[in-house]
């Protein structure tokens, strides 16, 4: 009742929706970079939306299922194969015992997710399975997955799904409309007004390139150097997922899952939470466009995304129940 990591991949970690309630101690939330993909993968196989999953980049890990399992992949499409047979993302999949799941090329997106029905049998650290590599806690011993790691599956995972054949179920989660193809939207931040005229003007329709030294702490953006009207020393205060900080160099960084809890750089904007999945799925070198929106729009989009996940959950339940009755 386990899976084994045959190949580690670039940076594969166990993540859930994040470690909540400890930011006042400087303990950052961690969690899936693309919480949407993580939840979709879970809902496809009737997991709780916040069940822990495996997050991975490309080169992706290779897994062996030591037991039959019911899984879903979402997020990036790294052209997965199970026993060398191609399988799609965003579909529920029955995996037979001893099957090997690997990935063949980086087709689209940047971060992939593997959810397994029932979830992983790990110890929680501070109410979460998310890996905090800095603290060395959470997930798999507080570190990225390594070759020969064996991840146990929760006992409940097994009984329902002992299929001896690989089978991709025909229904899928349609994620079009959840990810942006055009611009990413942001809310101007408290320090936006400190920017000089050029910088404010630029931010009305900004183009940036995602830099190679981007990681789970944040994506660094390359663009024209932005400046404030005058030099100003800010007192450290709270920052959050999606906060666009203006660094002294004039370049920006968007804070992501492993961000620090506080910061002292001007917060010129905040990517709306609904567009963070789109942002994190862009690889370094990609050009992105940012446009400002107001709170009303941001909240409307967020509400729509929440409704989509609810509908997806209901649809998956219906389909699976019908399938099991069949």
């Amino acid at each position: 009742m386990s899976i084994t990591i045959i190949k580690a991949g670039l940076f594969s970690t166990v993540q859930d929706t994040g470690r909540k309630g400890f930011q006042h101690l400087g303990i950052n939330p961690n969690g899936a970079m693309d919480p949407l993909a993580m939840q979709i993968a879970n809902l496809l196989i009737q997991n709780k939306a916040d069940e822990a999953v495996i997050e991975f980049f490309y080169p992706a890990p290779v897994f062996r299922f030591n037991t039959a399992a019911f899984i879903a992949l979402s997020g990036a499409d790294f052209v997965a194969t199970i026993n060398d047979i191609p399988v799609p993302i965003n579909h529920p999949i029955f995996v037979p015992e001893n099957a090997v799941l690997s990935f063949t090329k980086k087709q689209s997106g940047h971060i992939g997710y593997l959810a397994i029905q029932g979830g992983l049998e790990l110890n929680e650290w501070m109410n979460s399975y998310s890996t905090n590599t800095r603290a060395g806690a959470g997930g798999m011993e507080g570190r990225a997955l390594q070759k020969d790691d064996e991840l146990k599956l929760k006992a409940s995972a097994i009984q329902k799904n002992s299929q001896s054949q690989l089978q991709v179920l025909p229904w899928m989660a349609d994620t079009k409309g959840l990810y942006q193809t055009q611009s990413l939207r942001y809310l101007p931040g408290n320090e936006f007004s400190l920017l000089n005229t050029f910088s404010q003007q630029f931010m009305t329709n900004a183009q940036f390139t995602i830099l190679a030294d981007s990681d789970r702490m944040g994506y660094r953006l390359k663009g024209p150097a932005l400046k404030c009207k005058k030099q100003i020393e800010l007192i450290s205060s709270g920052v959050t997922n999606g906060t666009i900080q203006l660094l002294p160099s004039g370049q920006c960084i968007v804070l992501l899952a492993d961000h620090q809890t506080t910061g002292g750089y001007p917060r010129i904007g905040h990517i709306i939470q609904s567009d963070i999945p789109t942002l994190v799925q862009q690889s370094p070198g990609t050009i992105i466009r940012l446009i400002p929106v107001n709170m009303e729009t941001a909240e409307k989009i967020n509400n729509r995304q929440g409704q989509y996940l609810q509908q997806l959950k209901n649809a998956c339940t219906l389909q699976l129940n019908a399938y099991h009755r069949h």
């Binding site: 909540k20 309630g21 400890f22 930011q23 006042h24 939330p29 007192i235 450290s236 205060s237 709270g238 959050t240 809890t261 506080t262 939470q273 709170m295 009303e296 909240e299 967020n302 509400n303 929440g306």
Partner: peptide, 29 residues
Amino acid sequence: TDMIPAYSSLTLIYNPTIIRKQAMGGSPF
């Protein structure tokens, strides 16, 4: 879901879906 007290400010992180219910469908913010 979280609070970040700092030198001169307090930040609250929230789940808008839950706040929206309390706001009777209005703006969580």
